[in-house]
Design a binder for these strands. Structure first.
Lengths: 142, 142
DNA sequence: TTATGTGTAAGTATCACTATTACATTAATT
DNA sequence: AATTAATGTAATAGTGATACTTACACATAA
């Protein structure tokens, strides 16, 4: 399964941006919060930029900003922006085409996997970055 | 990362066993159908044995068998039997505990990820090996 | 013009996965 | 009892993705 931590880190980044309402945040500062290096953060921000979720302000006083409202960024959008690999990997080499099972297994299993992926994505579509930020604000109060 | 193909291959194996009704199938023959080596198949069969989905008959004329009805083996059971890693990987190193976001992000995001995983698993629980084998029998007729 | 940050390429270490080789063990067959 | 056919598993190597680090070009505010 996908062992990339990008999805979790990207959610962390976006939530951090949502907490500062419009003030640019440096990759260095995000890196401190995530506990990694600034280059790793910038690599993920690059993907988020491409996906239209964030934008970057160059130069002194610059940093990363949300490109749209946190309420309009779903975890599904984040997932799609940073995850490369298929959720389910199938046979590395094509199965035997002259065997009854080998010739048909992919056609039979792929629809089931597609349904599972759709269910996952539907659920990821229900939570937004604003939800995460809101809950963190609640927790920070106590 | 290299995503595991074990789930797809394990489903292939079980479907093949479901097609031969009670007759043991050699790992060698399964390997031919999957287009890999017999040792890889035996490695996956070892996990399926541990999970109680299959059993093996040693010695000459032996091979792998389903340990219960194909209708009682859900894709969810297969998934659980062969998949090692968490569906969603979180931060490799713990985030900054003194930052508002870092200290709380995992507590906030984990419930959302758990819901997504539950949705995925619910969907995988709806399809059985018997379903796959049945569809393949249909396809093989034409 | 200088200082501050982003963007990105190149190189490294690590890890999971798959394939391969090798061998011990078990059981049916003769 | 000996032979043969099969599983079970350890050890090893190759591959690919991830994440970390270093380095430097580029953009912008002051």
């Amino acid at each position: 399964m996908p062992t990339s931590t990008r999805f979790a880190v990207a959610s962390h980044i976006l939530t951090a941006l949502a907490m500062t309402e419009g003030k640019p945040v440096r990759s260095e500062d995000i890196a401190t919060s995530v506990n990694t290096s600034a280059v790793v953060i910038r690599g993920i921000l690059s993907r988020l930029n491409d996906a239209g979720l964030t934008r970057s302000q160059l130069g002194s006083g610059g940093g990363a900003l949300l490109a749209r409202s946190a309420a309009e960024i779903r975890l599904l959008d984040v997932y799609a922006a940073v995850e490369d690999t298929e959720l389910f990997a199938v046979h590395r080499t094509a199965p035997c085409t002259s065997c009854p099972v080998g010739a048909n297994i992919l056609d039979v299993i792929n629809p089931a996997l597609a349904r599972a992926r759709a269910a996952l994505e539907a659920e990821l579509g229900k939570t937004t970055i604003a939800d995460l930020a809101g809950t963190i604000r609640e927790l920070a109060k106590t």
